[in-house]
């Protein structure tokens, strides 16, 4: 019979090994991308347009297109996620609807991104006749971000101390006034952390944008909505990897991957900063 001490030791050792394995895996992926990608990174690579189908030149329009897509997604998802969180945490607080709404958000969050791409293709590209458009990509990425952001903002709103709400109510503030004066300022950090968490995931997504918003070559700055695709880093990497038997394509794919990883890391770091700030606010109050 195994003694309790041995069981404890086995459990602790297994936990430590698991933790170390996850850390090593993450460090390995980041390390390989950083080492392989650094070789391609130069001023010219970052700030010049692609040439020879990506075999030479840079990725300035891929970076610009990615920024356009995620900024559009941010602008669309911020008010929607905030509205969804207000409904769930304030107007439907402690009701069955709130539980159902949360379930719906989890389902949306778990939806494979390719399905969003298919929906976007048939609805925006074909039904509305927009063709490939940066706006469609922004909308689809916003839908991807929405559940994570809404759940994070709702969590921030639910952590606001009851005294704040009671005091504001007792001063004669209506619910919309309390939302503006208490809920929104107090859940600001949660709002940003949720959005950046969503963006960190969305920035690397290829599936929702490959049929709907982005092309491999031939696009620069959008000058309208319809038939106005952009270049993007994820789709650029997707294509270069397919051509990676050519060492120049492989090198540029690693360089683009490193730039994309920097984007995602910045959003992840912002998420952590704002999440810590949200917890500090909750503790401080």
């Amino acid at each position: 019979m195994i003694s309790r001490t041995l069981k404890n030791q086995l459990f602790i050792t297994f936990s430590r090994l698991s933790g170390f394995f996850v850390l090593a895996l993450l460090a390995g992926v980041i390390g390989v991308i950083a080492v392989k990608g650094m070789g391609a990174i130069s001023f010219n690579f970052i700030f010049s347009p692609m040439q020879e189908g990506g075999l030479s030149g840079g990725i300035i329009f891929q970076i610009a297109g990615t920024i356009i897509l995620i900024t559009t997604a941010l602008v669309i998802s911020l008010p929607l996620a905030t509205g969804a969180a207000i409904v769930k945490s304030i107007y439907w607080k402690d009701t069955r609807q709130a539980g159902a709404y949360q379930f719906f958000l989890y389902v949306l969050n778990g939806m494979p991104s390719i399905l969003l791409g298919v929906f976007g293709f048939f609805f925006f590209v074909k039904f509305l006749g927009w063709g490939k458009s940066w706006l469609t990509g922004g909308i689809l990425l916003a839908i991807m971000i929405l559940p994570v952001a809404a759940i994070s903002i709702a969590g921030g709103m639910e952590r606001i101390p009851r005294e704040y709400i009671d005091n504001a109510r007792a001063l004669g503030l209506s619910t919309p006034q309390i939302i503006r004066s208490v809920y929104l300022p107090q859940s600001f950090s949660s709002m940003l952390s949720g959005l950046f968490l969503g963006l960190a995931r969305a920035v690397g997504e290829t599936a929702p944008i490959m049929f709907t918003a982005t092309v491999f070559a031939g696009a620069v700055w959008p000058d309208g909505i319809i038939e106005n695709p952009v270049l993007s880093l994820p789709y650029h990497i997707f294509n270069l990897v397919q051509e990676s038997y050519d060492p120049r394509a492989a090198s540029n794919a690693w360089g683009s991957a490193l730039v994309l990883m920097v984007f995602a890391s910045v959003f992840s770091m912002l998420t952590i900063i704002f999440r810590l700030s949200a917890h500090e606010e909750a503790r401080g109050s």
Partner: peptide, 27 residues
């Protein structure tokens, strides 16, 4: 409007994040 006429002070002093001025003008 009723709560403007009938104000309430609670057991635990609760100040809102922000300045003294913001707190005074809050309601």
């Amino acid at each position: 409007d009723l709560r403007q006429y009938v104000g309430m002070v609670f057991q635990k002093p609760c100040v809102f994040p922000g300045s003294i001025e913001r707190n005074l003008l809050f309601g």
